[in-house]
Design a protein around this nucleic acid. Sequence first.
DNA 1: CTGTTAGCGCCTTCAT
DNA 2: ATGAAGGCGCTAACAG
Lengths: 339, 339
Amino acid sequence: MTARKPRIGQSRATLSDVAAHVGVSAITISRALNKPDLVSEALRQRIDEAVRLLGYVPNRAARALASTKSNSIVVLVPSLSNAVFVDTLAAVHDKLYPAGYQMLIGDTRYSPEQEEKLLRTYLEYNPDGILLTGFDQTPAAQQLLAASNIPTVHMMELDEGGRPCVGFSQFDSGYALTSLLLAKGYRRIAFLAAQLDPRTLRRGDGYRAALQQAGLYDASRELTEPNPSSVGMGGGLLARLLAQAPDCDAVFCNNDDLAVGVLFEAQRRGIRVPQDLAIAGFNNLDMSAWSNPAITTVATPRYATGSEAADMLLALMAGRQPASLKVDLGFELLARDST
Amino acid sequence: MTARKPRIGQSRATLSDVAAHVGVSAITISRALNKPDLVSEALRQRIDEAVRLLGYVPNRAARALASTKSNSIVVLVPSLSNAVFVDTLAAVHDKLYPAGYQMLIGDTRYSPEQEEKLLRTYLEYNPDGILLTGFDQTPAAQQLLAASNIPTVHMMELDEGGRPCVGFSQFDSGYALTSLLLAKGYRRIAFLAAQLDPRTLRRGDGYRAALQQAGLYDASRELTEPNPSSVGMGGGLLARLLAQAPDCDAVFCNNDDLAVGVLFEAQRRGIRVPQDLAIAGFNNLDMSAWSNPAITTVATPRYATGSEAADMLLALMAGRQPASLKVDLGFELLARDST
DNA sequence: CTGTTAGCGCCTTCAT
DNA sequence: ATGAAGGCGCTAACAG
């Protein structure tokens, strides 16, 4: 036998349905669910049972409307096919979910315009907080953010202007990896990249600075592609590179998948790694540790970035002042057999 | 015209703020935004300007509450670190976004319990539709779904019971790949898998059926790990396999990353591929096409699955009967040099 | 084409 | 520890 709801249609049970069932007022049900200590033990149990019986599911829209808190936070990343951002998202989720927040995930596909569109849409959800990747928001997006007055933390890069951020210096990492190659004696070092996003550009700046400082910079050794990086593209980039600068003795790949692709292509061409050509990657993706030879790379703090950014956001949302508004998580050079 | 209450605080502009500014009623603004043809050209322009001027952003919670339509759909996938699901998500987005729907993405981490939790939470958003992976929902989750009465489409597998679904036969694909190996003359074929989800199990069933049929099945050649698959794990699995069944002449890896890991480990051990050991993978991930040798695999319809599933959901949500409630997208065997 | 009247389901503020 | 009244911002259903 089913309890008949005095409501038309078969829309789901509401707070007052549960209230009617238990014989108390709606607000008491609300309290039992949200602030259990304010309701007596006995009542609470009866309420819980009624909730189960009626299959009551709270209506988030109503709650958000009435409380002006949505309990959801927007997270915008440039790509979901890059393990870097997936790991970061996982960390954010691990931190925010226990705190009662729902993630609204947006994939900007490396486009500030798309990011702006997503932001506009997600702002309609009245998010309590926002997590963005980098600082290359469109002016309109920046305005939206400013006007919304919603706590926002930027991930993956460091800001000089005081905006809350968690990441590491992209420039320094590019500089450091290039310096490592220089220290190992390589002199004709190429730079291969896909997806010219701001972080890639900044790593490239680091690469260039290191080489110029050593008097070894040669623009013909820098090669990029507009598409998302992949193993296949790594091979293609090496082919292009060898055509225009056949004397390279090392390549700095902006992502490990490119590096693995370069390795595969080198093998196909009978180029020995690292004897004829050294290969370095970036991001320390799983596969680069296991190839033959294993690939030198830069371990970047992706999980930690998500975790720290979520912490900072939690603080900001609670109105607390975070310990620091600029958290530099650093990076680690992993020298392996490919260099 | 109704009275506009001057709002306190700096909460953002509402419909009636815009209405007051323009000198019309709130509903007219609402219409100008949602059903522009119902509003005169001239008024619409003035409204658009006021919207821009005040930085008006609609409140989704209020709209959802008033219209009992949330314009969002829930998509639950087992993992975001598997390219398969990321591609599927991309397809769903490409289809649903233009139709005005927002995706609420949930990562179940291959756990039905986690899936149930996510479902419970996301149901609070009153989604207009639901996209799930596979059919292994917990009983409670199934009840929730049934009670919610929300159109739902299952992805990646095929159902016999009439539930809407888009995918391919996991069993057949496992059977077909194993048959290919048998046809090539391999006799001692191993099966390596991570993440024993229902799809993996079903592929394993196909593998087993093919071998049993040929009188060649040997349980000691089946190896699994509970953790998510990765290149590194592929190497580990090969090591374990060779310890307990050193005479294998082929391995069927449940995912391409495992296959690449097996290849790397084989190289390290001086095992020639495919002469000493043939390697086959699954899912046709980018890298498997470029390794040396390239890896035989099964191309699965991940983008198409998302796309078709979204179409079917769109039809269901519109109250239309989809052409078919069970769409079999098939799969393709890609024989390459590793076998 | 535009306006009025309600009320979506819940929570806030005050009461008891 | 529990309840009553009111309203969050928007749109459905009817006017006109």
